[in-house]
């Protein structure tokens, strides 16, 4: 099928198999490898991207359902080579160790802040509850998201 959608604010048009996952589409067809693959079945959140304002697991989203959607990936966070405030907060708060979970965490956090710019700590924890991190124990990540929210930009 011919697929047209918006990826990080830019229109994309390409020929794809409709039963391909968004994760394969990003990583294999578009060589955008910021979005990570781990479990492949919706359990780890490494592949989290934002579609029409909602966080989703790219490993469970089929390309056939993408026409006309607005997709944001971690590559869409930085602007002109500059890290976003949210990304900077992750670094400042030592919320990144091996970094494998980071793109997914960032996108879940971004989806939260888009809807709720001033979340409580409980709301932050709930928003990140679909993202596993094997390294950090989450505290630093929750702090980073809180700090970015306080600064009023993500």
């Amino acid at each position: 099928m011919k697929l047209e959608f918006i990826l990080n604010d830019k229109p994309v048009s390409l020929e794809v198999e409709p039963d391909m996952t968004l994760l394969d589409l990003l990583r294999e067809r578009l060589q955008m490898t910021g979005t990570k693959r781990s479990c492949g079945v919706g359990e780890c959140g490494a592949c989290t991207v934002i579609v029409d304002g909602e966080p989703v697991n790219a490993c469970l989203y089929l390309a056939g359902q993408l026409p006309g959607r607005w997709v944001y990936t971690v590559e869409g966070l930085s602007k002109d080579g500059k890290l976003s405030a949210l990304q900077q907060a992750f670094l400042d708060h030592h919320a990144v160790q091996c970094g494998f979970c980071t793109p997914g965490m960032l996108m879940s956090a971004k989806a939260l802040l888009l809807k709720n710019p001033h979340p409580t700590e409980a709301e932050i924890r709930r928003a990140l509850s679909g993202n596993l991190c094997r390294c950090t124990g989450y505290e630093a990540i929750v702090e980073a998201v809180g700090a970015a929210a306080e600064r009023g930009s993500s």
């Binding site: 919706g42 959140g45 909602e54 966080p55 697991n57 879940s108 928003a127 509850s129 679909g130």
Partner: peptide, 9 residues
């Protein structure tokens, strides 16, 4: 149900 990502879908 599931996680925020799962509940979106």
């Amino acid at each position: 149900v599931g996680s925020p990502q799962i509940r979106s879908r």
